[in-house]
C-alpha cells in the first residue's frame, strides 16, 4: 500500500463510507500497522469539528443504569437497593413507580434540564435542575472577551424580568439554589455578557450569549 492509498483508506474509514468488511479489515490492520493507525488518528482530528453539526438531544433516562449493568463490577449494589442514578438525567418511570412504595421518603421532583444554545444553535451549556438546585456545565468550553464576565439569569414563565442567579466562574461549572424562585418546566435560562462584577441594573445589560428552556429530563 502506498502512503497515498493508506491515507485515502483512513479518510474513508473516518468518514464512514467503508462497508462492514473493509471496516473490519482496516480495524484489524490498525493493530499492527502504526502508519495506518496514525493516518486514521490524523483524519479523526481533521474532521472532528463536523461533529458539531449534529443537534444535541437528551438520551433515554434509563441509559446510564443500563450501561452500569453492562459494565458490572465497580460500584456493585445490593439487589434490594434501587439503583438511584446519582444525577438528574436518570430516575424516570421506574422511579415514579417505586416512589409509591417508599412512603417514608417523599419522591423527588422530576429532574429538569436544558441545553443552552448559541445564536447559531450550537450547544454551549448543559443545565440541570433538581430539588431546587440548578447545575451548569460547559459543553464546549470557550474563552470570553477580556475584562467581561458571564452572568446567569432565569426567567420564569409569565415573569416580565429575569432574576440573576449569579456570575459564572471561568471553569464553566456552576451550581446554585435560588432562594426566591424555583426551577420549573418552561423557565428560560440565559447567560449574558456583563462588565466585571456583573450587571448593576438587575437586568442583563450585555448581549444574551446562550439561551435554553427547562423541560423534564428525557423529553427532548
Amino acid at each position: 500500500m502506498t502512503p497515498g492509498e493508506r491515507d485515502a483508506l483512513a479518510a474513508e474509514y473516518v468518514l464512514g463510507t467503508l462497508d462492514a468488511r473493509a471496516t473490519a479489515e482496516l480495524r484489524g490492520a490498525m493493530e499492527t500497522d502504526a502508519a495506518l493507525a496514525d493516518a486514521v488518528a490524523g483524519w479523526e482530528q481533521r474532521l472532528a469539528p463536523l461533529q458539531l453539526l449534529a443537534t444535541p438531544e437528551a438520551p433515554p433516562p434509563d441509559l446510564w443504569a443500563r450501561l452500569e449493568r453492562t459494565l458490572g463490577g465497580g460500584a456493585r449494589r445490593k439487589a434490594w437497593r434501587f439503583p438511584w442514578p446519582a444525577f438528574g438525567l436518570g430516575a424516570g418511570a421506574l422511579a415514579a413507580g417505586l416512589a409509591a412504595f417508599i412512603v417514608f421518603r417523599p419522591p423527588p421532583a422530576a429532574p429538569l434540564m436544558t441545553v443552552l444554545l448559541t445564536s447559531r444553535d450550537q450547544p454551549a451549556y448543559l443545565v440541570e435542575a433538581e430539588r431546587g438546585t440548578l447545575r451548569l456545565a460547559a459543553l464546549n468550553p470557550r474563552g470570553i472577551e477580556a475584562g467581561r464576565v458571564m452572568q446567569l439569569w432565569a426567567l420564569p414563565q409569565g415573569a416580565t424580568a429575569p432574576t440573576s442567579l449569579g456570575l459564572i466562574p471561568e471553569s464553566g461549572r456552576f451550581s446554585v439554589t435560588p432562594q426566591n424562585i424555583r426551577p420549573e418546566p418552561g423557565m428560560l435560562i440565559e447567560i449574558s455578557l456583563e462588565p466585571p462584577g456583573g450587571s448593576t441594573t438587575g437586568r442583563p445589560t450585555g448581549p444574551i450569549l446562550f439561551i435554553g428552556r427547562l423541560s423534564a429530563a428525557g423529553n427532548s
Partner: peptide, 24 residues
C-alpha cells in the same frame, strides 16, 4: 478505573453524543 469519573463524563457529554448518534 474510577467509575464515578465515567458517570461524570456521561453526565457531561451524553446529550451531545446522543445527538451525534441520532444524526446517523
Amino acid at each position: 478505573e474510577d467509575r464515578t469519573a465515567l458517570q461524570a463524563l456521561y453526565k457531561l457529554q451524553s446529550v451531545r453524543l446522543f445527538g451525534v448518534a441520532m444524526a446517523i
